[in-house]
């Protein structure tokens, strides 16, 4: 039993190593494009940092967010957005359309590992230029961040949960590609809403109550706003614990939904072909 499980883990590890390597050499071919893409991901945080800074400069602190907190919020947001990014919804429908999914299904390796591996590979490789950029942002904006070991570890935990959560959320939408070629449209629709209510355009504390109630029904807050608030030390211990539990519950629920959709979709796929 144990030996079998160990073999399975070793097999997975080998597979992941090879896939990371593959994605990296693919990214190297497109390093300029990848770099530009990364810069693009910084546009949102910087723009909204500017908007809120100028509002707070005129109105004073809002719901506990003074200028320092606003700066900290959006600087940390650029980090959180990088680690929580997910894009399988586009990749997956491409795999179905081109028949590449079939090539992966005839292998003794679950195709979703490819998606996870390429996501992880992309995020790790981009650190090469993101760490200098983030350092530059830190030195330029001088945000006040709690940098104690405990705070940083809690932030990393919240960040990890957030990445898994948004990855699974995206994965659920990707499964829609089994039924329609427009899976990504559904996702973009939800994502734009999530950007408004989940802590993207503004900290959730600053959005009107009506939007806050929408926010509570979606997983976006736990994928965006929550880890940022943990990172800048805006939450007390109880709120952090409650948020971590809520993230874990979302993850469990989304995982179950994803696996159901996957099985259901695969059934359909093997009934109609591609």
């Amino acid at each position: 039993m144990i030996a079998g499980a160990l073999r399975a883990v070793a097999g997975l590890w080998r597979g992941y190593k090879a896939l990371l390597h593959l994605t990296w050499s693919e990214m190297l071919q497109y390093r300029a494009a990848v770099f530009i893409w990364t810069l693009w991901s910084l546009a949102g945080p910087i723009i909204h940092l500017s908007v809120w800074s100028s509002i707070v400069a005129a109105e004073g602190a809002l719901a506990g967010y003074d200028r320092g907190a606003i700066v900290a919020y959006f600087v940390v947001q650029s980090v959180v957005y990088h680690f929580t990014g997910a894009w399988q919804v586009w990749d997956f429908s491409y795999l179905i359309r081109t028949g590449r999914l079939s090539a992966r299904l005839v292998k003794p390796f679950d195709p979703s590992h490819h998606l996870v591996a390429s996501n992880v590979a992309f995020k790790l490789m981009n650190l090469v230029w993101l760490i200098p950029i983030w350092t530059g942002m830190y030195l330029y904006f001088r945000p006040e961040l709690p940098l104690g070991v405990g705070s940083v570890l809690t932030f990393l935990l919240a960040l990890l949960l957030a990445s898994v959560l948004l990855f699974l959320w995206n994965q659920c939408f990707a499964m829609i590609a089994f039924w329609t070629v427009r899976a990504s449209a559904f996702y973009e629709f939800a994502d734009a809403l999530g950007y408004m209510v989940g802590g993207g355009i503004a900290p959730v504390a600053l959005i009107p109550p009506a939007l806050q109630s929408i926010s509570r029904a979606l997983p976006y807050y736990y994928g965006v706003g929550f880890p940022i608030e943990v990172g800048i030390g805006a939450l007390d211990g109880a709120a952090v614990r409650a948020g971590l539990w809520a993230s874990a519950l979302w993850i469990a629920a989304l995982f179950v939904i994803y696996r159901l959709l996957w099985r259901w979709g695969l059934k359909r796929f093997s009934a109609v072909g591609a």
Binding site: G11, R14, G15, K17, A18, L19, H21, L22, S25, E26, Q29, Y30, T98, G99, R100, S102, A103, R104, K107, P108, F109
Partner: peptide, 22 residues
């Protein structure tokens, strides 16, 4: 309808298969 990844050498795909099939 291939399994080779377009932008990288075929060798990289072979290595992935090596790992997948152990």
């Amino acid at each position: 309808k291939n399994q080779l990844v377009w932008d990288v050498p075929a060798m990289d795909t072979f290595l992935v298969n090596q790992a997948i099939y152990g």
